[in-house]
Write a protein that binds this DNA or RNA. Structure first.
Lengths: 229, 229
DNA sequence: AGGGTTATTGTTCATTGTACACCAAATAAT
DNA sequence: ATTATTTGGTGTACAATGAACAATAACCCT
């Protein structure tokens, strides 16, 4: 094989860190590999990129095949390309993360042969390939991003309570926040609309329900902000 | 050509946005392409990644071949992989940016056939491939990064004045800063050491020279900070 | 009716950000 | 030598933001 030919003995893939929030913890959607290498191990969902497919399209395809979801938040993080990261050849992978509302997620039975399931981010077992490293990098990026734009809302159902929102931020940022200060800050942004509805069926004082103001939300995503907590 | 084969009719490259600072403006090092496609156009320095070469190693190699510099600040930004971004085939590229002290830069005559030269970032002409887009993304990342860690120092000579430092931040962030507030903030970090030396040969009151405290610098790079200006 | 659980609300103090103007020290020009 | 020109260096008052902190309200369950 000539030098020039060997430039083309390579492929690229996408891997997608799909984050979800179950109301109290940040989760990631992992598949169990059904074939070697790393058969039986947990891994990030991913696939080779088709020859005529854009990278982002490939990431969207992986997401849709696994969850049936389209049009969700998706962001590239970076490329991982260590020479020996894939045992079968030179494969560099482009890492994406996406944010999904777990309630929208309908398991796709036949799409991937593999079983997909939610796992808590922290204290995670060893994953296939360099996927622990990829996951860690994506989490760092999410933590940074959530301070710059209100993307955390992508993980919540349309109606939510302030406590749910706070728990989301706490689980993303891995920190505890002061309840009163959090509320003061988030409400002062005029990003939330009070729905004048209450939780029902809870065995304690019911909380108000909010949704976010779509216009303000777009502004914040585009212009960014500094959300120090 | 079968579907499977066509997965391997692809290649990946690195492109390096090399930033420099001439004392008043942020610059980027561009080459003039000596061969098609885009012959004669300005482009980012880049190259295909060798089969047994890590991505970062490739970026370092491109930088060294062009400038003779090793061990300078280098950071991956993201991958660019639109299907038709390269007219000769499917080539995705991984973008890096690096920060160099222009005084250290010794032009490499024979290394690349192309001519390399510094260009001001703003009001840049049209570059080859999607390099305008890549450059723009790298600049955005630099702007974010410089607020989180003191990496701006990588662009300055070992001894510098506070005014030079301020002009660096102003040219990176494309904004004007208040002199007194800037000095108050930067000095309060205990990141700078007063060298008890003065500028010489300037036609005005000479400024004090500073260097940065290596220990503090490392701490800030690792732990990060919030540098709101 | 009372216990359990979570929701909601405001003030004080410390810290940080922001706006702003004058004198000092060097060279250059006359 | 005097003056002009240029950039360096410094402090204060006010506003805004961040941080710490605890008592009452509303629902369900028994």
């Amino acid at each position: 094989m000539s030098e020039v030919d060997s430039f083309f003995k390579s492929a690229f893939s996408v891997d997608n860190v799909i984050f979800g929030f179950d109301g109290s913890d940040l989760k990631v959607l992992l598949i169990q590999r059904g074939a070697p290498p790393f058969k039986g191990k947990l891994a990030l969902p991913g696939d080779l990129v088709y020859p005529n497919e854009n990278l982002e399209t490939a990431a969207e395809r992986v997401l849709e095949q696994l969850t049936g979801l389209r049009g969700v938040y998706l962001e590239q993080v970076k490329a991982f390309g260590a020479v020996n990261r894939h045992p079968l050849g030179r494969v560099i992978t482009i890492a994406y993360y996406s944010l999904v509302k777990t309630k929208d997620y309908t398991p796709m039975p036949a799409s991937f042969a593999q079983v997909a399931s939610w796992h808590t981010i922290h204290h995670l077992e060893e994953l296939a390939f360099d996927h622990n490293q990829i996951l860690h990098n994506c989490l760092l990026q999410l933590q940074q991003r959530v301070r710059m734009a209100p993307i955390g809302f992508e993980l919540l159902p349309p109606k939510f309570t302030l406590t749910e929102l706070q728990q989301l931020y706490e689980s993303i940022l891995e920190t505890e926040l002061d309840k009163r200060n959090f509320r003061k800050k988030i409400l002062s942004m005029n990003l939330l609309e009070d729905l004048n509805e209450m939780q029902a069926g809870v065995a304690h004082r019911p909380a108000k329900l909010y949704q976010f103001d779509q216009e303000r939300y777009k502004q914040f995503v585009e212009r960014g902000y500094s959300f120090d907590l």
